[in-house]
Write a protein that binds this DNA or RNA. Structure first.
Lengths: 242, 242
DNA sequence: CGCAAACTTGATGGCCGTCAAGCAAAGTGG
DNA sequence: CCACTTTGCTTGACGGCCATCAAGTTTGCG
């Protein structure tokens, strides 16, 4: 996405989900103070006075939240696409328990928490939208736990694709069963709790089944219903519509 | 715990974590309207006008949040002990994406969300305590994702024990490296993303290593440091103290 | 004391991790 | 425009962790 005159427009449009915010509130969001940073792929999203005082808003590209283990292995906790607020809830925590990184080259807006807070005090609709955002984030965490804990590789992968497709569709970055998939297999592995080798084999399986196609960082879903079945996917936890 | 004259005392005492609430706020919490239900072990915590309108507060026993898969298998998302508020955040959601069940016989207080909400508007300290509670819940979700996604059975089990010990200690239900462990191995399996058989073998391994002992629903930790190492456990995400 | 639920243990197999090599694609510099 | 390099993808061989199935054995409770 080209840098626009109103960079926070993606955020303002997306907040509220199925019931978009009133124009006044959207304007208020676009008037927030912020600065934008471009983060190269696979680089951490942190700077001197980073996430502890500022809320991140993804304007372009994909990012993730992750934790590292003692032996250096990584678990990705969540993937984020344009319009997402990866650390909306983590303010006034003495120290964050997770890291944030760019999955692709990404542009991220940083908004001081203080200003966000003020906004929620001035607009009940925005406060409500933020609460909704937090609820969906928690529900998404829950879905990941279940996926990683109880589903096999094929189901996990299918589930993740379904989730990402709907989330991208909601911000008009996916349509007609096609979506960008600009992420390395090794990152997918960290997200799915697998190894890159096994992600590759699983992908091959899904391709051979005719469920999806993935070429040149573009993924095509050949049969949405079957993919949902394969992933035991039920979209209600995303609360994208009523 | 015997039914006391102030059933919500556990909650009032625990909220705020390392910086307990002022007496006035604790009194306000104990004055909330509520009703108490006793739920038998392995029964769902739901009734006609249950969790969607009422916030649950665990007074005694252990409970869990869980999701079911299409094939009937179960993933436990979180375990809850006295003082916990398992569904603090899930109000004004059209439909919950998870179930709640008693792990042991449990007594649960139900408080109307409306009254909770009012309380947060009247007391900044309580509002803050609830926010903190939500943050810790989210951090705990993240720790579970990492555990299930990237740690083997032994590490997962050790990690869970460490977490539960500290949480029980915080409400004075554990001390001197001993804690109650009133949960079936098959439930542990659902929490850890394993099978009951493998939980049993893993437990045997930890016992043989001399790390823990578990008899008659009582768990003794022989070496806290070693157990933390075995589980790659770092307590900071629980935010129990500064 | 008797039954049911939960724990324990063994045998077997499969999913997925690990190691290793080759291939394709994308970027770089001359 | 093309060697060259780097990064990421693909595939094979092998092994281990954990699931599954199938007995017992112990514990708890009426």
């Amino acid at each position: 996405m080209a840098p626009s005159k109103y960079p926070l427009g993606v955020i303002a449009n997306r907040l509220g989900g199925a019931s978009p915010l009133p124009v006044a509130d959207r304007d208020a969001i676009q008037s927030l103070p912020f600065f934008v940073r471009t983060i190269e792929a696979h680089q951490d999203i942190v700077n001197e006075d980073g996430p502890s005082t500022h809320c991140c808003m993804i304007l372009d590209g994909w990012t993730c939240c992750y934790q590292l283990l003692a032996d250096g292995r990584r678990q990705i906790l969540s993937l984020h696409v344009p319009g997402d607020l990866p650390n909306l809830q983590s303010f006034h925590l003495p120290q964050s328990d997770f890291g944030m990184a760019a999955v692709t080259r990404a542009s991220v807006a940083f908004v001081p928490y203080a200003d966000l807070r003020k906004l929620t005090e001035e607009s009940a609709a925005i406060a409500q939208a933020f609460r909704r955002e937090a609820l969906v984030a928690a529900a998404t965490y829950r879905a990941w736990i279940t996926s990683i804990g109880r589903r096999d590789a094929r189901q996990r992968f299918a589930h993740l694709i379904c989730e990402l497709y709907l989330r991208l569709e909601a911000v008009e970055l996916a349509t007609a069963n096609a979506m960008p998939m600009p992420i390395r297999q090794s990152d997918l592995a960290d997200a799915l709790g697998l190894t890159a080798v096994h992600v590759n084999r699983t992908l091959k399986g899904l391709r051979n089944e005719g469920l999806i196609d993935l070429r040149a960082r573009r993924l095509v879903i050949h049969n949405w219903e079957d993919l949902c079945t394969a992933g035991d996917f039920s979209p209600k936890y995303l609360h994208l519509s009523e």
